[in-house]
Amino acid sequence: MALKAIGALFEEAPAVDDGKACGIDRPVLLKGLPGGIKVEPAATIRCETALQLARWMEGSVKPSLEAAMPGEAITVLSQASAYVCRNRNGADEGRISEHAFGNAVDIAGFALKSGKTVTIRPADKEPTLEGAFQRAITEAACLYFTTVLDPGSDAAHQNHLHLDVKERRGGYRYCW
Rank of each mutant, 00 (worst) to 15 (best):
D150K: 07
K166G: 13
C85I: 12
L112K: 00
N103H: 12
E167I: 11
T147A: 05
F10P: 01
V16L: 15
G19F: 12
D25T: 12
V16N: 11
P27C: 04
G109V: 06
T44L: 15
E139H: 02
G170Y: 11
K125V: 11
R135N: 03
G152L: 09
R26V: 09
Q158T: 15
N87Y: 07
L29P: 05
A67E: 14
D124V: 02
P14E: 13
I45K: 01
R168G: 13
M69G: 00
A43G: 05
G102T: 08
P27Q: 03
E66K: 00
V105H: 04
P151W: 10
R88L: 14
I107W: 01
E40N: 08
E126T: 07
A132R: 01
E139I: 01
P41Q: 07
A123E: 02
A8V: 12
V16P: 04
C85S: 13
L51H: 11
K4D: 13
I120D: 04
E66S: 06
P34L: 08
G109H: 05
E48H: 11
E130N: 06
A100F: 03
T75L: 02
S81D: 07
A80V: 09
F10G: 02
A140T: 06
N89K: 15
N103R: 13
P41D: 10
L161V: 07
L161I: 11
V28T: 11
A136M: 02
K166H: 12
A15I: 06
E11Q: 14
R173P: 09
Q52H: 14
S60Y: 02
F145A: 06
Y144P: 04
P122H: 04
T117V: 10
K38M: 09
L163P: 06
D106Q: 08
G170K: 12
K20A: 14
I37S: 04
G131W: 01
Y172C: 05
A50S: 09
T119N: 13
I45F: 02
R168P: 09
G7A: 09
A82I: 03
C85A: 13
E72G: 03
F133W: 00
